[in-house]
């Protein structure tokens, strides 16, 4: 178990290093000079064509770390990151690390609540769907999954706000106004990813139920509860966990959208505000943070996976 954890942790570190390279290169391979683009955006659009001074451009290039050979740029950039410095926001002139830190709890709360909603919907839906395969219960649960998967979460969010906040006035619509503020955002984000999980769970449970070992378990005269919870559900969770990075990716990506819809004080909204101002360091910092969070969550799932499946070897999960 310990060797397994260490190996997975090493793999996660390598992935993390890879993501820093991608984030670093992205800014440098996009067409055009980033510094010029930033300066053009900062100018008043109404002012018409204005000559940008070469000195301004070079100053900003230096600030963004765009001068010198690429490997040196990368090492300097990485050095700053390892010291906990993600740079300075071009708009607010504040350190990005500090600005992110104040918003991280908001995003984590939303993600955790949405995961809760997801599990509360997905597990019953998937299990009932598989047990009553081909019957009304199954059709109902498949229909719910299909709807959940097809409703864009920004549309669902707007509809929920209209219904519960503006019309019925049961819940607050925007921002953080107390614990009940979390309900609508978490519902919006949770239902979308619940659909994927419920569908995965249904099909993997169906597969498990038609395995020969289930026939053997039934031939042993075991009770219904034991058949379902001890023999069927645990192996059925394995493929669901294998596909969990899909769900986690949907969770983190969806968080950005949902935070925008509900004006939720999290890193996603911080990012969207930065886009308009071409605040490149903020965009980079945000992307790195989300990738790190994603890798950490996947690492946790890997460890849980090992607890469920005694067969797993480190090599097995490479390349799906």
């Amino acid at each position: 178990m310990l060797t397994y954890a260490v190996k997975r942790a090493a793999a996660a570190l390598v992935a993390l290093l890879g993501t820093t390279v991608v984030v670093f290169l992205l800014l440098r391979i996009i067409p055009g000079d980033p510094a010029t683009a930033v300066l053009l955006t900062m100018l008043d659009p109404g002012a018409g064509s204005v000559e940008l001074s070469m000195a301004d451009i070079e100053a900003l290039q230096a600030e963004l770390g765009l001068t010198g050979p690429l490997p040196v740029q990368y090492l300097e950039w990485m050095g700053e990151i390892l010291r906990g410095n993600l740079g300075t926001s071009l708009r607010s002139r504040q350190p990005i690390m500090g600005e992110l830190a104040t918003r991280i709890p908001g995003t984590l709360t939303l993600a955790a609540a949405s995961l809760g909603v997801m599990l509360a919907i997905a597990i019953p839906c998937g299990v009932l769907g598989a047990l009553y395969a081909g019957r009304p219960t199954d059709h109902l649960s498949r229909a719910i999954s299909l709807l959940g998967e097809s409703l864009p979460n920004f549309f669902l969010g707007v509809l929920l706000v209209y219904l519960f906040a503006l019309w019925l006035r049961w819940l607050p619509s925007m921002g953080w106004q107390g614990p009940d503020s979390i309900v609508l955002p978490a519902l919006t984000l949770g239902t979308g990813i619940a659909a994927t999980t419920a569908r995965l769970l249904r099909s993997s449970l169906l597969d498990t139920l038609s395995q020969p070992f289930m026939l053997m378990a039934e031939a042993k005269g075991l009770s219904r509860g034991r058949l379902l919870f001890r023999h069927a559900l645990r192996p059925a969770l394995i493929p669901v966990m294998t596909a969990s990075s899909l769900v986690l990716g949907g969770l983190l990506g969806g968080a950005v959208v949902v935070e925008t819809v509900f004006a939720w004080p999290g890193v996603g909204r911080y990012m969207i505000e930065a886009i308009a101002g071409r605040d490149y360091p903020v965009i980079q910092g945000f992307t790195l943070f989300m990738a790190t969070l994603f890798i950490v969550l996947n690492f946790i799932v890997d460890i849980l996976y090992r607890l469920i499946d005694p067969r797993i070897r480190v090599e097995v999960r490479r390349h799906g």
Binding site: P34, G249, L251, L252, M271, T287, M290, A291, F294
Partner: peptide, 14 residues
């Protein structure tokens, strides 16, 4: 290693 939509947002934003 990136959440899909997050990377898409970053690329489009950059």
């Amino acid at each position: 290693a990136f959440p899909r939509l997050v990377l898409a947002i970053a690329v489009a934003a950059l």
